[in-house]
């Protein structure tokens, strides 16, 4: 009964994550949109950073969870772990889209273009496509175990894109600015760093909360399907 205990735990603790995420994001939004100063060079548009960066970080974190979950699934073959990876992919795609769209809105007034074929942008778009492929794969196959295995392999192979996204701005010539927080130090003034950190932590917590809710959703759906006799094979009760 490990599984039902996990679900009961998720139920009990998810609220804390939700509330903490909500509070941090609210304070972060207030500081980011109202009290922090405009940037010396970009002016007010710099405020888009407070949502763009956390969304991109959470998207990459979601992919990392997907990667870890996929490895674990291939090793232990635990269907609930597969539900966790599947949930992480669904949320990851959402954050990836937010990062791409807010980035595009930021790019127009700063760079003067909505989109350009810059290595950072391309590698991020590839992550979106990998996630789309992953979710498509999850709807196709009749054999749920095979489906989970193929999906896990795809997720593991696609993980190679993550270091490319992160270091693209350091390795190649890009229009996108280099990393602000790196071995060089922190190149963001404190006034702007605080709302950014609050939003980042808030988004990580929000991701954790969403992951808990979505894992339950997928698990319950599978449970229901199993009960209704469509796929009895792999759900342990």
């Amino acid at each position: 009964m490990v599984v039902s205990r996990l679900i009961a735990k998720l139920q009990r603790y998810e609220g804390w994550f939700g509330v903490a995420a909500g509070l941090l994001i609210m304070v972060g939004l207030y500081m980011g949109l109202v009290t922090s100063s405009p940037d010396y060079y970009q002016g007010e548009v710099v405020r888009i950073m407070y949502i763009h960066v956390p969304a991109a970080q959470s998207a990459m974190f979601a992919y990392t969870v997907l990667f870890g979950g996929s490895l674990w699934y291939l090793w232990k073959r635990d269907p609930v772990v597969d539900n966790v990876s599947h949930a992480a992919a669904g949320i990851g795609i959402f954050f990836t889209l937010i990062a791409l769209i807010t980035g595009s809105i930021w790019a127009k007034p700063t760079w003067n273009t909505w989109w350009t074929w810059d290595p950072r942008l391309i590698s991020f778009a590839i992550m979106l496509l990998i996630l789309v492929g992953y979710l498509m794969l999850r709807t196709f196959l009749e054999d749920k175990e095979k489906e989970a295995t193929y999906a896990a392999i795809l997720a593991i192979v696609g993980f190679i894109d993550l270091p490319i996204i992160h270091f693209s701005v350091e390795w190649w010539r890009t229009l996108h600015q280099p990393l602000s927080i790196s071995t060089r130090g922190v190149a963001i003034a404190r006034d702007m760093l605080i709302p950014l950190l609050l939003m980042s932590i808030g988004f990580y917590l929000l991701f954790a909360y969403m992951l808990m809710v979505r894992t339950q959703m997928l698990y319950l759906q599978h449970l229901l399907e199993a009960k209704r006799g469509r796929m009895l094979s792999k759900v342990h009760l």
Binding site: S37, D39, Q42, L175, V186, I188
Partner: peptide, 29 residues
């Protein structure tokens, strides 16, 4: 023309007061 901005972010007052943050040298980018 596209503007290539650097990775440092600071308020106008800080910049006017001569503030600088550790950023990559532009020519290196």
């Amino acid at each position: 023309i596209m503007a290539k901005h650097s990775e440092d972010y600071m308020p106008i007052e800080m910049k006017k007061a001569g503030g600088a943050l550790p950023k990559k040298d532009f020519f290196k980018t």
